[in-house]
Every structure is written in C-alpha cells, then in structure tokens.
Amino acid sequence: MDPTQTLATGSGYWSPLLWLLALVVGLAVALVIRSRGRKDFREGEGRAPFISGNKEPEQGGGHIPASNIYWGFLESMKSYYGRLVPVHTGVPTDYVAWLLGIMALMLIIGLAT
C-alpha cells in the first residue's frame, strides 16, 4: 500500500494512514500514563465505587433495557414522533396510496416544468 495514500475530496485531502498514526500516538500516550500508575494495586482491595452515596447494585441487576436509553430525547421530541410514527400504519393500502400520491405529485410537477 502506498504510504502517501490520500483521499482527494475536491476541496482537500484526507489520509487514513495519518489518522491511524494519530490513533497509535494517542494509544501510546495512554499507555505511558497508565504505566505511571500504582503498581501495588490489586483488584478487590480498596473502597467500593462511589455512586452518589447509593449502594453498589448487584452484578447482573445493572443492565439498562434498550427502551430506557434516550428516554429524554424521545420525551422532548414527543410532538415530532407523535405525528411521524402513526403514519407508519402497517396497512398495505396506505403504502400503495403513498406511492400513487408521490407519482401524481411528480406528474404534476414534471408536466408543469
């Protein structure tokens, strides 16, 4: 592979290999920082993780189901989704109607121009 391999985008260049190099450098920095940590630490020692003063939940009980992820986003976009989701009725006649509707619209636009 050519090391000068770049992607010309018309207004600039992007080199995937330079990006990889940057990743490697970042990884090296992280490893250097990690190697400066305490060598005498062993798992199981020390204090339990601090979770806002609550007790650490049991292993296995900490899984968040998918429906709860982005709850806030969905809640704030409720008016948008409230209109969009019902359009996906699942009724085949509606699907055909949408196809015919777009076809009619394009016929009007196409013949007018």
Binding site: H88, W98, L99, I102, G110, L111
Partner: peptide, 29 residues
Amino acid sequence: ALDKVALVLLAVPLAMKCGAVPMHFWTPD
C-alpha cells in the same frame, strides 16, 4: 409530454423500490 409521464412512471417506482421516504414503509417490515 408522454416522455415526461413515462419518466415519472419509471423514476417514482424505482425510488420506491430503493426505499426512499415517503415510500419506504415496506422497507422496515
């Protein structure tokens, strides 16, 4: 004018077959 009609009759169904909104309803199903 007939060619224009033909163009629409060709382009819109093919756009539907590639799943373009708002004719994408079949895609997720």
